[in-house]
Each structure stands twice: as C-alpha cells, then as structure tokens.
Simulated scan of single mutants.
Amino acid sequence: MRTALVIGTGLIGTSAALALAARGVHVHLRDHDPAQARTAAARGAGTDQEPDGPVDLAVVAVPPAHVATTLAEAIRSGTARAYLDVASVKGGPRRELEALGCDLSRYLGTHPMAGRERSGPMAAGADLFEGRPWVLTPTHETDTEVLNLALELVAHCRAVPVVMDADAHDRAVALVSHTPQLLSSLVAARLQDADETAVRLCGQGVRDVTRIAASDPRMWIDILSANPGPVADILAAVAADLDGTVRALRALESADEAKRGEGAEGIEDVLRRGNAGRSRVPGKHGAAPAVYETVTVLIGDQPGELARIFADAGRAGVNIEDVRIEHATGQQAGLIQLMVEPGAVAGLAATLRDRGWSVRQ
C-alpha cells in the first residue's frame, strides 16, 4: 500500500490515518467538514488535498447511516483499488450496497474494536488500535487483493485481525458494546437528580459502571439506529432479569420467612450468573482471567507519585498486572490498588513499607 484516502476524519478515521502516515503511506483526508480534515492534516495524519488519481485503499470512517451512500459514491467514481469501512455495524451497510447495485468484490466491511469517550481528530492517536481486535467480514465475493490490503491496514495499526460473518458481528457487538453503553447511561442517569450528599459518596464501583456514559450521544444515536434489533433483544432479556430482581428484593422486605428465603435465592441466582459471565471475559493477553491479589496504598496527588510507586514495585521484582486509583473526596490523596500475583503480595507490601508508603491491607 502506497496511497490511501480516509473519508471521515473523526476519532477512528484520523487514528487510522495517523498510523498509516507513520508507516510511510501517503494519506489523503476528506471530510464533509473541511476544517476537521485540516485539523487532522495539521496533526500529521496526511494531506487534505484530493488525490490526483485512484489510491490503493479508501477507508470510509463515517457514521453508519452514511456508510453505504459514501461507499457507493466512492466506488462509482473509481476512487480506489479497494474499499473498506470501519463502522460499528456490518450487515446493514452491506445490504444497502447490494440494493444500490455496487460491485462488492472491491469492498470489505471491517470494524476496529477500539474507541474513546472523546471524539474528533484531536482525540485521535496512531496507537488507538494497538493490540485491539479488528473485525473483518469477507464473503465469497471479496477479492483477494482487497482482503490483503485490509490485512495490511490492520498490521500498520498494530491491531489483531478477527474474521467474522457480518450479522454475527452485529449480534456480538450488540452484547459486548452497544448494550453496555445503554446500561451505563441508564445508571448514570439516576445520578442526574440525586441528592448532592449521595453523589459525594460515589466510589470506584459507580465510576467503573458509568465511565462510558460520558460518550457523545449523537455518535451513539447513529450507532444504535443501525443495530436496533439485536440491542433490543438483549435489553429485553436484561429487563426480564431486572423484573425478577425487583420481585426478589421486594420479597426480602416481607415478614414471611419463606418469601424472604425465595428473595435471597433470586438475588443469589443473578449474582452467581454474573460471576459466571464475568469469568468468561478475556484477561491479560487474551487469556482466561487470572485471579490477582490487591495491595492498596495511600498515594498523594502530586507529580511523580505514580512513577515512584511503580519504580518501587520494580525494585521489589514485582510485575503490576493491573491498577486502579480511587480518589479521596475533598482530599489531595487517594488509594491506589495494585493487582499482583498472589505470591508477590508479601514482598511487595514489605518493600513499599520500607520505602515509606502507607500500605492498607
């Protein structure tokens, strides 16, 4: 691949362009908002000048509702040797292209499983896709050259290619991406009118659950509008679980001991099913989730403190497998939770104490 055209210079399009440009590909940038394309170009993602002739690869990075029409226009004008999109839904755009009579041999639907709560070219980064799955949905019509160019793009972005059927992909992302977004927003919405004293009690749990609720609503309306059926199916199942959980909680209020027992069983059932589901989420390096122990340390909110505690962990010969920080309300300090292998806990705690850290276990 020597040349590429990225159509749509938001977070995903600009990130892909930055990665390609860093690998020596001459990238052209196009956007319905020329100022956004100029911003991406100023960040080193390529040039906002139109190509003189067909490029090797055209990457369409526009909202799902506009993917098919944008691709159809590019294909009919002979913009590139190969075309792909990076929308978060795959079945719908392909069927729309079929209805428009496009040659699908030069097209491949793809979806990089990466993103941020912020959007636009200023949020982009060449490392956005590194180590992340990048779904490819080839069919028997897909030309081998198109697939090879798509794989080259994935390699330049240092992502991990995953081949799936388009409709299977849409059902999968409904479960692991689209539904979690809505559930996060539903929980966060409860905080909008909550009493200030309650909000001040927010800990790491509510921060974890509501993190993605900060996402751009306009972007998510586009995504959900392109995949409403599978998401609605999953939410209907969640609603049934919620209904059962509400009944179980009401039973726990009963004066009848038998009803309280039934309520406790209902709550235990959903919690245990949650344990089982959580255990299937891939852990480090895609392996089965490991069981780590936590060493909790009080840390000040000053420059260099994180670097210092990681350096001290290195002196102990301990690898930090994961980390979380819980900020203390109204204080210039917080608690850092260092997740490590169980056998490393005692040595890490001792070293950190020797180095002057306040270890809380």
Rank of each mutant, 00 (worst) to 15 (best):
D170I: 03
Q192T: 12
S177A: 01
A198L: 01
Q181E: 04
A166R: 09
A237I: 08
P217H: 03
P112W: 06
D167G: 04
H169V: 12
D233E: 01
G120L: 11
A126V: 09
V160C: 03
A126N: 14
I234A: 13
V176N: 05
G115P: 11
S225C: 08
A126R: 11
A126C: 10
N148Y: 15
E145P: 15
L183M: 05
V199T: 09
A150N: 05
L183D: 03
Q192L: 11
S215G: 01
S177L: 09
M219A: 12
R200I: 13
P133F: 13
H140T: 01
P228A: 09
D208E: 03
V160M: 02
H111Q: 01
V187T: 10
L149F: 01
L183A: 10
R158T: 01
E145Q: 10
L182E: 02
A114P: 03
T179C: 11
S119I: 00
T144P: 05
I223M: 00
T142N: 08
P112R: 06
E117A: 15
P138V: 12
N227Y: 15
V173A: 09
T179F: 04
M164A: 07
D193R: 00
W220K: 06
R132V: 06
E130M: 14
L191N: 12
H111I: 02
G115I: 09
A155T: 01
A213I: 02
E152Q: 06
R218C: 08
S215A: 08
P230L: 12
T110R: 15
S105E: 05
T137V: 03
V176Q: 07
L149W: 08
G131L: 07
A172F: 15
A126E: 07
V154I: 14
A232F: 04
H140N: 06
S177F: 04
I212R: 00
G229M: 14
P133T: 02
S185K: 07
R190G: 15
D127E: 02
R106K: 04
V163N: 13
A213K: 02
S215T: 05
D193M: 06
A213M: 06
L201M: 06
L183Y: 04
Q181V: 10
A198P: 02
E196L: 14
R118G: 10
R200H: 15
R218N: 04
L191V: 07
A126P: 14
N148V: 11
R207W: 08
H178N: 08
T144Q: 00
D127G: 05
L201K: 05
N227W: 15
